[in-house]
Amino acid sequence: MEKVGYFCTFTPKELIRAAGFLPVRVLARNDSVSLANTHIQSYCCSQVRGSLERMLNGELRFQGVVFTRSCDSLMRLADIWDRNSEMKVFSMEFPTKIDHRAKEFLIEEFYSLKETLENWSGREIDEKNLSESIRIYSELENLLKKLFEIEPDYHLILNAETETPEEVIRLLRLRFEEIRSKKERKKDDTIKKALVTGSVCPIPEVMELIRDTGFRIIDDLCTGSRFFTTFTKKKIPDTMDELMDFLAEKYLKKAPCPTKNYPEDGRFKYLIEKAEDVDAVIFLLLKFCEPHFFDYPQLKEKFEEMGKKTLLIELEFPISTEQLRTRLEAFYEMLEE
């Protein structure tokens, strides 16, 4: 199956799949960059620089790439990508302001994306393949949600972002069988719950380090629960217009991202609620990520008012795990005191 890459979780991968492509999320590796240095400055985040590096070194074989409006760095990356690769590039707008005007505008954008994808593949997106695509992704998302409630798995979520949903659903089912066959797990009082909130972190080792330190992770990452969390419960409809409406609603009601503006400070409210019964909050932010770093000081203040201790980890790839381990252990010990 031909692949189409995308960056932002607000990209309707259902449309990409309905056009006959495998949607694959473009993520950086835990490496330093060299080729990308002559195309983008060093004060750009590792996700953007690392993804560009992977394209430049020929690692990515995609028919095309979809850029969805989110942050300034990705907005400019689209042109840099377009000028330096043979891939087709499409930029889709996503409203920054999530209000009553957003849906109509977003549906228009979805229709443009649909038309573009049909041109790329030569296959029509119809009611049948689109509703099937919506169905399979919602099955995948529900399973991931269930798994993350028990225990986040950052290898499986990477699979979910880059492989066919059928395959990942199979893996998820196996995992649930494993979990069921295990004996009732003992409650461990020394385990502390930490809300881990932040941007892209496609490196499972980092998450394992947090867990090994003794934390149970409540996830709010772009490469974690924000990939699959949405707050719609409607039935999948029949006509194309209804399907597009359904999709627009699904993406507008996704778990909040700091690149969007929500009424009533929606993201803060969402996170405050999520943090209610955790012992600590870990901010896992990519260095130079403006949307997250603007929210950080005031969010931190809110959490501290709730009596939570917080830790800020700034990520730049490649990551030194030793240093990270030391900081996490020190933080854990501080919580014990």
Partner: peptide, 9 residues
């Protein structure tokens, strides 16, 4: 960033 990224291109 929006003014500077892309300058090399």
């Amino acid at each position: 960033k929006p003014y500077s990224f892309g300058q090399y291109e």
